[in-house]
Design a protein around this nucleic acid. Sequence first.
DNA 1: TGCGTGCTACGAAAGTGTTCGTATCTTAGT
DNA 2: ACTAAGATACGAACACTTTCGTAGCACGCA
Lengths: 129, 129
Amino acid sequence: MASSKPTAAELAILRVLWRQGPSTVRAVHEALLAEPASDYTAGYTTVLKLLQIMRKKGLVVCDTANMAHVYRPAVSEAETQSDLVKDLLDGAFNGSTRALVLRALSMPSSTPEELVEIRKLIEELERGG
Amino acid sequence: MASSKPTAAELAILRVLWRQGPSTVRAVHEALLAEPASDYTAGYTTVLKLLQIMRKKGLVVCDTANMAHVYRPAVSEAETQSDLVKDLLDGAFNGSTRALVLRALSMPSSTPEELVEIRKLIEELERGG
DNA sequence: TGCGTGCTACGAAAGTGTTCGTATCTTAGT
DNA sequence: ACTAAGATACGAACACTTTCGTAGCACGCA
């Protein structure tokens, strides 16, 4: 079974695991509560339940040697990003990478510095192959 | 109330409306069935129900002058694309446009021709502002 | 041993999305 | 006027996601 697309809540947990590395449920829960931008309010057992569901789905694996299980991602960030980009590409951009990039660059969060970086990136891609 | 993010099924319908312009339920249904890539199998009343829901959400508007109602999008494709890109940016790319663009460019569907187009696009953006 | 603390397991509720069956309405044709 | 075709309206079922309450287990310590 291929790794299915994570839901919003699952993605929030994966973000924590990608950033922090292997973590206990408590560590994940506290990291989520500590996130500045998102006003996460879910309780401890919610995070536990989600991790158990994600384990069944193959999104995380779990070391049960100690009493407090240690979870780590079973899917890479890059792989997940690719899956989500592909979905968005097919679902809202008729498969056109160009259209997606154009739209991304027109977002207010794309700064001039980022534009320069992205141009260099593309020049490298063109050179490299 | 701001236009909420359309679901997968709603997006498929919006795609048809954006492409075809104002359409009856039947026209939308047949267009969905005729789509080559996606194996759409939902029945007529499903599409009808979805359009009614989308009307309540403000995603489409509906001309009820004739017996066969004519639906048209109430949200623009560009606006919807921006909303979805913003969600993906925040959800899976830590807000980094650069990371999203890099990932998009590394997709197999990004052809050399597209790379050239995108580079030109960025150069214009840099020149223009 | 008995208790408090922290952990996992699990059932269940609430919300949402998707699907369809059925009932009802409108219109055109005979 | 009656019927058949095609349209809308709507309830309800089903699946999935997210949430939490509660039960039960393991460990350290007085």
